[in-house]
Each structure stands twice: as C-alpha cells, then as structure tokens.
Design a protein around this nucleic acid. Sequence first.
DNA 1: GATGCAATTGCAAACGTTTGAAATTTTTTT
DNA 2: AAAAAAATTTCAAACGTTTGCAATTGCATC
Lengths: 342, 342
Amino acid sequence: MSRPVTIKDIAKKFKCSPSTVSRALNNHPVINEDTRRNLQEYARKVGYQRNQVSLNLLNKKTASIGVVVPTINNYYESAIIEGIDSVLQPLGYSLNICVTNEQFLLEQGYVEKLLSNRVEGIFVSVSQETYDAGHYEHFENIYNRNLPLIFIDREYEGFAVGSVTIDDYHGAFAAVEHLIKTGRRRIAHLRGPQSMSVAEQRFRGYSECLKQYGFEEDESLIIHTDFKVESAIKPVYHLLDLPSRPDAIFCVNDQTAIGAMKVIRDQGLDIPGEIAVAGFDDSPISGYISPSLTSVMRPGRQLGMKAARIFLDYQLADKKDTFSEHIILPPQLVVRESTLGE
Amino acid sequence: MSRPVTIKDIAKKFKCSPSTVSRALNNHPVINEDTRRNLQEYARKVGYQRNQVSLNLLNKKTASIGVVVPTINNYYESAIIEGIDSVLQPLGYSLNICVTNEQFLLEQGYVEKLLSNRVEGIFVSVSQETYDAGHYEHFENIYNRNLPLIFIDREYEGFAVGSVTIDDYHGAFAAVEHLIKTGRRRIAHLRGPQSMSVAEQRFRGYSECLKQYGFEEDESLIIHTDFKVESAIKPVYHLLDLPSRPDAIFCVNDQTAIGAMKVIRDQGLDIPGEIAVAGFDDSPISGYISPSLTSVMRPGRQLGMKAARIFLDYQLADKKDTFSEHIILPPQLVVRESTLGE
DNA sequence: GATGCAATTGCAAACGTTTGAAATTTTTTT
DNA sequence: AAAAAAATTTCAAACGTTTGCAATTGCATC
C-alpha cells in the first residue's frame, strides 16, 4: 500500500530538481561527485526503485514479448517457451505468457491485451477453436500495428512475419516407413482431432506412406482420439477385437501410445512381438518405460530459439514490409524396443 | 514501426480536445450522441487501441502478477501456474511468468524487474541455488514495498504474506508405511538433493516412518539423485548389487522411479514380486506404464488456486500488517501395481 | 434581447521519468 | 576585479490517458 518512493520525493528531500536526482542515479557524468554520492546513498537507504512503467511510456518501449499458447503442461510446449526465453531473456526481454486452453475467445482477448500493453512482438501457437471458427481478425490487428507476429508450431498462413513449424508429415512418414520395413503389414493409426493441422499432417504422412508402399488404406484401422492417454483406451480395445487384428499402431502422440500399450498388455499381447507401437513427441520418459517406446522427436527448444531469432532478425531488417522467414524443422525418428525385437 | 494511433491524433483530426475523444470512446454519458458515434467509428476505422501503459502509470495499477518458478517443464509446476491463472485471469490479472532455472541470480534479477514493473503481487517458488546461497534480500525488498509475497510449493520462512505448500513429510510417510504394511522389510530410498527442502521432507518422512515401525535406518540404502530419470540409473544398479538387496525402493519422484523400474527390469527382476517401487508426483502417465506406478499425488492445481485466493484475501484484508495465511495441503497416496500383487 | 439553464466541450493537472537547452554557480584566466 | 570558461543545476516538454472543474454553446423562457 505505501506508495513507492519516487524521484520527486527524493528531490524534495534534497531541495533539488528531479532532473538532478535522475542524472545522479544514472551516473550521468555532469553531476557533482558529492551530490551523486549523497543521492545514491539516500536512494538506496529508502529503497528507491525506478518505475519502469513510466519509462515504458516515455520510451515507447516495453521490452516485453507476448507468447500465446494453447497449453503449457506438456514437455514439448514448455520446451518451446524455454527456447524462446533462452534467446530473449539475456537481451532483456521478458515474456508475457498467455495460455488459451485451446479457446478462441481467450486467444482473441489475450492478443488484444498484449497489443494494448504495447508488447514488441507476439508469438502465437494457434488454438484449436480458432481453427474451427476460422476467425483470424485478431491476427490481422497485430499485422496492422506493424507488430511482428511469429507463429510457433501451429501456424496460420497470413499476417505473419515468420513461422517455425515441425514437418509432422515427414515425421509420420518416417515412422510408418520404419514399421513397414520391419515387416508390419496391417498398420493402424490413432488419429488426432480432425481440426488440428498437426494431427492432420501426421495422418497424411501415415496415409501417403501406406500408398507409396502399395498398401490399401483401411478405414477401420483409423480411429480418432483427442491426444490424451484415456482417449486411446476404447479405440485400441476396438482395434484388438477386429477379425483381422493390426500388427502395428502408429499413434498421433506418446500419450495415446502409452494408453495403447496398456490396453495391449492388459489383453495379454506382446509388444513388439505381436503388435508394434510407435508414438510422436519423444517425451522424456519414452526411453524408460517398458518396452521403451519408438517415437518421433520434435525439437521444441530449437523451435523456440529459431522463432526468437526470427523476431530479432526482423528488428534489424531494413525492408520490414518484405521480411518473411518460414522455417520447417525436421523431426527425428527414435527407434526403440516397442517396434523392434528385444 | 508505424506509431500506433493515439487519442491526440484523433482529437487533432476532429479538431476537438483529447478529453472529448477519451470520454466518447469510454461512452461517457455527457458526450453528444453524434460526436460519440463519429469518434467511435473513426477510432475503429483507424484501429485505435488504448495504451494500457499510460493507464498503468496514471492509475498506479498494472493488474499484473509476477510468478517466479524454477521450471515449467513438468506437470506439477505447470499445474500450479494453471491453478493461479484459473483464479486470477477471470479477474483481469495477467501473469508474468519468470523461469529461474534454479539459478539465484536469475531469481534475484526477476524479482527486481517485477518490482520495477510494479506488479501487484509476487508468487515465488524458491530456487535451489537461493537455498544454497542463503540470500533472501530480494524477498525482503518485496516485503519492504508492502507488496504481497506468496510462496508456492517451495517456501522461505519470512517476508511472506502467505504460503501454500505440500505436506511432503506425511506423503512420504504414507508411502513408506504402505510398503511396510505390504510386507517389505528392506526399503531403499532414492533421495533428492540435500539442499532442497521438498526432498529433505520426503527423506524425513521415510526416515521417521522406518523408525516408528522399529526398522534400522541403513545408510547404504539411501542414495542421492537430482530428480532426473538418468540420475536414478547408477544408484539403482548399486542397490541391486548389494549383498542383501532391498525389497522396495521409495523414490523422491516419478522420474527417478521410472529410471529405477527400468534398471530393475533390465536386471531381470520382477516388480513388484521381488522389488516394489513407489514414486512421488503421480504424473499423468504413472497409471499407464507397466507395471503401473504407486505414487504420491500432489494437488498442484489446487495449490495454485489456494495461493491465488490468499492474494485476493490479502487485497481485501483491513489489517494487512498482521495478515498471514499459511496452508499446507495433504498429498495423497495412489496405490498401483508397482507395490502390490497383480 | 436579456436571462437562465442544460448540454456539451475544453483546460489543466496528474502519473514518474528522462533529456536538450537554458540558467545559474563556481572556478579559472587575464 | 572583471571577464571568460567550466561545472553544475534547473526548466520545460514529452510519453498517452483520465477527470474535476471551468468555459462555452445552444436553446427556451420571460
């Protein structure tokens, strides 16, 4: 409650002008040695702390960056944020992290708030509801303010100065190719929500790979999930009950893969002997569960760092109106026990 | 780059005063109907967006809250943040999340920055280095500014308006008690870093429980780890090589428990047949790995919500100088296959 | 046409800090 | 001792917005 000490307070106390106090505290060379020492000492004693808010207004700079993401409670997303932070924090920027929970209205609200707070750039990973609704005006607002908008992981084509995404298509392709090359013939897919582009890309990778290797795509082997462990349970029971059971399951992420493995084990089937399982994300535990899980690694931290670099490059660019940088990072298949022999 | 449109710009365009524009845009009833409509329409057309920074300065309010945490890349920590956010976001607050990476200097720097940015409250989960160094002056600064400081999960006794922590001691006690009651006689412990109070509390719970049930504490069964999966590997190999092997391992968290389980399996031993394993955290996958992992659940989201409530209560409190609220939440033992028969 | 009243708009200060230019004080030079 | 030079300090404006109070305008009433 007690109002923080201001420069004016100190000036009044010392019967001098605020300018003198300001310069003294900033070690401006024009200030008398004694004056400087006295003022600095007093400022420390009363716990003066410069008001950054007023400086932000004066300098029209806030050194803060908006980061709008659907969630932060999984390894990949937080790795992205960590990557951005690792580049921008040392330069004095601070991140304003906004969690949309996949809700369009929250995303929209956060963007407005960030603009109003005069952040110097906005990183966005588009929420699912936004894709569903097809409303992208809030991104247009960012664009109209000439503020750098950079999409991370989940992009929208338009209004962006840059984007860094993962080549989910080829990641999925590689995983399925690996399954085929290790002799699997009926490969099922636990698909993600249709509205999410990452999930769709993985499905495409799955689908195209089957086609290229001359396999028929079997509708009954493709089931939707919502990314969560639990959502894999029922679909996998269903898959195992099919007259001609699949001999491999490619899962849209590690969570569903773990759910799948549980069901398969509970049914007394052997992994990878009878059914191979592959996931997507390479979460930290995937190497330690049993059997260890084959998975497609997404370089989240690197993605964040690249996105931050794009932002910095944009700041330096002379022809900002033509600046545009879109990076697609390759994921990497990590083969483990769940798709191989012991 | 293009300077955002200001109220002054609009005033100049309409040859009226900024006050009129301000009132028109805020629907002040004293403004003429036509004027209001024209101004609002124009403002929308040119994409006027109120500058929140100037308002923050004027009102001496920022509606932002600092959250200083060691990490965000695990489920528990992000659940805490989610809990805080779920309470404060609907009230218009935005969170300024700072990740210290367990570094004292970063923690100190972030606290200064938050103070300078005039946040209205600070939530802190103390970093390990800060405990090691024993430097708590930055917390004193918060206290001296009469700013509410609330410790979450990892606390320091002093300068705080409140704290919400988990009763790690009793959580660990319950886990070990469960192991004893299910017939285990040589219970090992994968301990966390000595400097971290959460880890120490869990160790105390382990230690006291053994004592109460009349067991000797065996130094050779207690090994330090650093919370990470990998750090469990070597210690567990060592434990299994002992002349008289333990029949249970209580691990400081799920990560190390998963590492332990891997080693035990690799050595061809049966879980829980020959060795039981219990963890701490109840991470989302613990119910789905094989065997499913007995673990102590920490209510992270609830913790965050409680912390946020303390902050709100403090705002309302009339006698702030005596306000103090310290909550200890009970964790809950979740028994699964890794400590039971099939 | 003067007066009164309501409706509408403008003025000025405030928030805390910085900074170029001007003003004042101190020191040096002649 | 006066003038010039150097050192130090103050003034005033700026950043964008809000708000109590004063000023202006329009309109009706007498």
